[in-house]
Computed example of a mutant assay.
Amino acid sequence: MRSEHVSRPARPFFPASGGNPSAALEQLCREIDAAFEAAETAPGASFGQRVRLALQRAIAGPDLLRPDQRTSNAQAYCRHLLAADPLNRYAIAALVWEPGQASPVHGHRTWCGYAVIEGTLEETLYRWDPLEHCAVATRRHARAPGAVSYVDAGRGAIHQLGNPADATARAVSLHIYGVAGAQIATHVNDLLAA
């Protein structure tokens, strides 16, 4: 009987681990790897649903982020790269938002998911107006701790995310993007005029 060797991806790179990453972060990486594997072997399995469930489980544990991964920047929201897939399929980051800080209005060049860990973010949704070549706001809603979102690439899910100016504390969110870790700042957002 012949035994076949199944090649598994190498362990994700944890640039911000300062030692060992949290058990919750390692579990999140295993679940994202499993979502990719399921998408390849069972086409009916929903990759997006698996990512959403993985995010929900990850933020449920208190040990996901260390204090240094929750630090902010007074000038703009702060992004902490937490993990990068060795096959360049995804990167995981914590975003820390002081009151009044927000992303630009953007669509996505890749799939992405996020979950709110701490504080309440405000999300404004937009639709693309092809005649005017701009994004038009359609609605705004609060995203409380535990809120989870997943979108595919494209202009079908244009939004702006931020911590309202009248918030009394910072907000922290966990994001997974379908890009290599080195591309997290350059290959995710499709910046749009609103």
Results as ranks from 00 to 15, higher is better:
residue 4 E to N: 03
residue 8 R to V: 09
residue 9 P to K: 06
residue 9 P to R: 07
residue 11 R to W: 08
residue 11 R to F: 08
residue 11 R to Y: 08
residue 13 F to H: 10
residue 14 F to H: 06
residue 14 F to N: 02
residue 16 A to I: 00
residue 20 N to L: 15
residue 20 N to D: 14
residue 21 P to T: 02
residue 21 P to Q: 10
residue 24 A to M: 10
residue 25 L to S: 01
residue 28 L to Y: 03
residue 29 C to Y: 04
residue 30 R to C: 10
residue 31 E to V: 07
residue 32 I to A: 02
residue 35 A to G: 03
residue 41 T to H: 13
residue 41 T to F: 09
residue 42 A to F: 12
residue 43 P to E: 15
residue 45 A to I: 12
residue 46 S to V: 11
residue 47 F to L: 05
residue 47 F to N: 03
residue 48 G to I: 11
residue 49 Q to C: 08
residue 53 L to I: 12
residue 55 L to H: 08
residue 63 D to H: 14
residue 64 L to K: 03
residue 67 P to F: 13
residue 67 P to C: 11
residue 68 D to V: 02
residue 69 Q to T: 01
residue 73 N to D: 15
residue 73 N to F: 07
residue 76 A to M: 10
residue 76 A to G: 06
residue 84 A to I: 05
residue 86 P to W: 06
residue 88 N to Q: 13
residue 89 R to N: 07
residue 91 A to G: 05
residue 91 A to N: 04
residue 92 I to L: 12
residue 92 I to A: 00
residue 93 A to K: 05
residue 94 A to L: 04
residue 97 W to P: 03
residue 99 P to N: 08
residue 100 G to R: 08
residue 102 A to Y: 07
residue 103 S to V: 04
residue 103 S to F: 01
residue 104 P to H: 04
residue 105 V to K: 03
residue 106 H to I: 05
residue 106 H to A: 05
residue 107 G to V: 07
residue 109 R to G: 12
residue 110 T to V: 15
residue 111 W to C: 01
residue 113 G to D: 06
residue 113 G to P: 00
residue 116 V to I: 14
residue 120 T to F: 09
residue 120 T to L: 02
residue 121 L to R: 06
residue 122 E to N: 14
residue 122 E to T: 15
residue 125 L to N: 11
residue 126 Y to E: 05
residue 126 Y to Q: 02
residue 126 Y to F: 14
residue 127 R to T: 13
residue 128 W to D: 02
residue 131 L to T: 13
residue 134 C to L: 12
residue 134 C to K: 15
residue 135 A to Q: 04
residue 136 V to G: 05
residue 136 V to N: 04
residue 143 R to K: 13
residue 143 R to P: 02
residue 143 R to Q: 09
residue 145 P to Y: 10
residue 147 A to E: 12
residue 149 S to Q: 14
residue 150 Y to L: 03
residue 151 V to L: 09
residue 151 V to T: 15
residue 152 D to V: 11
residue 152 D to C: 01
residue 158 I to C: 01
residue 158 I to E: 04
residue 160 Q to H: 05
residue 161 L to T: 12
residue 162 G to P: 07
residue 163 N to Y: 02
residue 163 N to V: 05
residue 164 P to K: 08
residue 165 A to D: 13
residue 167 A to L: 10
residue 170 R to N: 14
residue 170 R to E: 14
residue 173 S to K: 00
residue 174 L to D: 00
residue 174 L to M: 12
residue 175 H to T: 06
residue 176 I to F: 05
residue 178 G to N: 03
residue 179 V to R: 09
residue 183 Q to C: 11
residue 184 I to R: 04
residue 186 T to I: 12
residue 188 V to L: 09
residue 188 V to C: 11
residue 189 N to G: 08
residue 191 L to E: 08
residue 193 A to T: 10
residue 193 A to M: 06
